[in-house]
Amino acid sequence: MSWITKTFSSSIGRKFIMAVTGLFLCSFLVVHLLINLQMLRHDGGASFNFWAEFMGTNPVIRAMEVVLMLGLLAHIYQGLALAVKNKKARGGQAYVVNHSEQNSQWASRNMALLGTLLLIFLIVHLMNFWIRSRFDAMGGLAEVRVPNLDHPVGDLYSVAAASFKIPWYVALYALSQIALGYHLWHGFRSGFQTLGLNHRKYTPAIYLTGYGFSVIVSALFAIIPLVMFFSEAYQPRPATGNTVEQSLTTEPALR
């Protein structure tokens, strides 16, 4: 083995990958969230569709999408590998009585479980949105026109608005965000610790930021489907086959 493979197959090396990819995924979450929030604008999804188109066509973003996918896969692979290794290290005989809740947080001890829940959610989520928007063969999107662009764009908004009228789907989304919140609750600060960024001056701030980040991000992600479910203002566009003009100021409900 070369020093590189040795480094990244060592316990610290694996954790290093977990930390780097994890924090990278956190940054992606922010972008994703900002775009999702566009759906709550009362513009019939014009803003949302605009940014969805941007994300789907900008060459830099497309390149980053590959990095993101690789990072995600690495995060999943290393997470599973570590879970297996750590289970083996624990040994065959479990404690008859173990009060680990008295020495650590639940989220910290259950990152693998939370990660697995998130993975299941991700598969559903990607099949529904990402694959449909990227690959026409998987259903494709209706086309709409949005301001400031001279060509029609896919109406991803309608897919979301339609999905978020299905009760079990909304429930799945909202509950998955609880898993996300817990995962981030531990993961954010843990990433910094693994990278060696622990200092008595800054660590309290990192912890605080991490806790804030996990609550705010997961709460906002969860609120979007709930709002769209309960509010009449957010409706999918009926499939007409024609390209529709959208205006950033048009309130779809008033149309």
Partner: peptide
């Protein structure tokens, strides 16, 4: 020391803090 630690079969730290 880390190489020996891994060789002994200890698990990897996941910053649980226990």
């Amino acid at each position: 020391m880390v190489a020996q630690m891994d060789k002994e079969g200890f698990g990897a730290c996941s910053n649980i803090g226990s």
